[in-house]
Design a protein around this nucleic acid. Structure first.
Lengths: 223, 223
DNA sequence: CTTCTTTCGCATACAGCGTTCGCGAACATC
DNA sequence: GATGTTCGCGAACGCTGTATGCGAAAGAAG
């Protein structure tokens, strides 16, 4: 049991050992899974389908990934590598807002991401790079570290919630969740709720509403 | 097709028709599912196991519930019935904070609830009662209805996030998510992150930290 | 080139899942 | 009693995540 490979799930995908002929590695598995999720949703990401997308068998994946949940974590962390991290400008508010805008774009690119971010918060290598960057941006800020971590987590979660809502109201079939609401509103029993729904055409550009929420939260938690 | 029962999923459980000899109804199914989830977690709530808990067969449940997801929605809405809704006091901040504290207690009672609230936001009958109550509390507040709905949603989501985090740091095995973090911190590559974790013994009572977050958010969104 | 060790790919199998179908039995109404 | 409806549910379908074990390939050592 000398050369037994350490089961460090979180090795960076590029560092992960690659298979021989087909050059398939953890990175490729993650990429294939993300592709599948982008096109057909999270529930389409089954070990069999990911393997099929790679032209291999399901059991082969377990040489590179311990479990399906680990694969999901790898997908999440991989998206943290899609950030562009410019040098801090000195205006931490502006820098964090810009990061939040990027987060929103990334989550819109990967509609499965908000759910993962919220239900299984994880920090892999890329996520830690991102956190380190946020700490750089906040280097001169007087808040204690715990508060900064709180801000980081809250930023991610709020963005995920916002995008989730954004995507849900856009998708035509996802209005299942408001089906009963509209039923009730139409029944006339709850006039205020009916009015509420008539008025809930979201005002203004989503980008601006998002920026407002993030700004309010930032000033709320970091002063 | 005259007496064909309208497939209104959201009928209040008590109003739902009950089975004959065993008196099992949608309410009992929901209650059994909640019990199971309380004791063994959400993933233990399978149609077969819920049915077994009721001493019946899995297929029988489909007479009362269209799908498993509908059952989950029923569970979520049922918890909204656990609120105690006192008459508005005139101080909407205090009233909403008190509701938030109740929400936290309810979610701690049902550890599966935060995940459901976040991933499948739904308003059933009980949820609408709760929303109506919030609208009562905010009756004299000058904000437009859309803003009030936003506050309602944000309150729920934030509470869910808080409790989720609270439960995750408490559970001994759920520290899987910080396993890699501690590994990295121990490796010495990221001294700031290591320091961050050393300092992240949460300061103060959870109840107070929660109240602070809610208050900040409320004043942020409702002025 | 041969041998030995390690790793890879994967066929197969298992237990469990959500859901559908169809039928016999129980019920309510007349 | 007859009729029309509803209920309970055994059985089946197609799918899932994962464990096992084996043949083949690759790499290292001689």
């Amino acid at each position: 049991m000398a050369g037994r490979q350490e089961p460090v799930i979180w090795m960076r995908p590029e560092q992960a050992r690659i298979g021989r002929p087909a050059e398939r590695s953890r990175a490729e598995i993650t990429a294939a899974a993300m592709d599948l999720a982008d096109r057909e949703g999270l529930e389409a990401v089954s070990m069999r389908r990911v393997a099929a997308a790679l032209g291999t068998g399901a059991a082969s994946l377990y040489r590179y990934v311990a479990t399906r949940d680990d694969l999901l974590d790898l997908m999440t962390d991989s998206t943290a590598g899609e950030y562009d991290l410019p040098a801090p400008s000195g205006d931490w508010q502006a820098d964090l807002l810009q990061l939040a805008h990027q987060a929103r774009q990334i989550m819109r690119r990967h509609p499965w991401l908000p759910t993962l971010v919220i239900t299984r918060p994880t920090l892999g290598p890329y996520g830690i790079d991102l956190l380190e960057h946020v700490l750089d941006v906040l280097a001169d800020h007087p808040a204690d570290p715990a508060r900064k971590l709180e801000a980081f987590a809250l930023l991610n979660a709020l963005t995920a919630l916002f995008v989730q809502n954004e995507l849900a109201t856009a998708d035509p079939d996802a209005q299942r969740q408001t089906a009963y609401l509209r039923h009730v509103a139409a029944a006339g029993d709850h006039p205020r709720i009916a009015a509420l729904f008539a008025a809930t055409a979201p005002e203004g550009e989503p980008r601006d509403r998002f920026a407002t929420i993030i700004r309010r939260t930032l000033t709320g938690v970091l002063g």
